[in-house]
């Protein structure tokens, strides 16, 4: 054991929580409008009983999901998400209830991209998508300079390929 690999330490951007909250709030409002509309039409035109129930269930699920993804998830995600990389490996760690740790050799990374939707733009954040031969990994929210720096750095390290690909 010449060198033990260090646990990843880098964290997401400080304003991750409001950004994610805004994102999920908007999507949940839309869903609620759709399902609420369905519920209202179902009641107004007095469709069948099962459509009433169906719409109640849909609205209920949306509300529960709203509590989770607006109230809790952003906080947990920000609190437990860590990433880190060296010349050789990228590491991503997330979750408390379902703890998850991934170790990806730089040589196996195929593509890395920074992405930004309208809400992340308001907060001037980017999410990073890292694709390997096997899967794709996300870093959900990084400040602009950091995101670009990390992207370029990973791209540089990932340029090296192993013999026998």
């Amino acid at each position: 054991m010449e060198k033990d690999i260090q646990e990843p330490t880098q964290r997401l951007a400080d304003n991750t929580v409001p950004a994610l909250r805004w994102g999920s709030t908007i999507s949940h409002v839309i869903w609620l409008a759709v399902f609420g509309g369905f519920c209202a039409t179902s009641l107004y035109f007095s469709w069948w009983t099962w459509t009433h129930w169906f719409s109640y269930v849909l609205v209920g699920i949306t509300l529960i999901s709203a509590v989770w993804s607006i109230g809790l998830r952003p906080v947990y995600l920000h609190k437990h998400f860590r990433y880190g990389f060296t010349e050789e490996f990228l590491q991503i760690k997330s979750g408390a209830f379902h703890e998850r740790y991934e170790l990806i050799p730089m040589t196996k990374i195929q593509a890395v991209s920074t992405n930004q939707g309208p809400i992340l733009r308001r907060f001037s954040l980017y999410y990073l998508e890292i694709e390997t031969m096997g899967s794709s990994h996300d870093i959900p929210a990084l400040p602009k300079e950091v995101a670009i720096e990390v992207r370029n750095q990973i791209a540089r390290y990932a340029k090296i390929k192993e013999v026998d690909e």
């Binding site: 379902h98 703890e99 998850r100 740790y101 991934e102 196996k108 390997t132 096997g134």
Partner: peptide, 22 residues
């Protein structure tokens, strides 16, 4: 080509983990 280590709450209590490789 890559590996992962995952732990559910139950596994954390028992000091266990699920390893994965691709």
């Amino acid at each position: 080509i890559e590996i992962s280590v995952k732990r559910t709450k139950l596994q954390q209590w028992f000091g266990l983990a699920t390893i994965g490789l691709i």
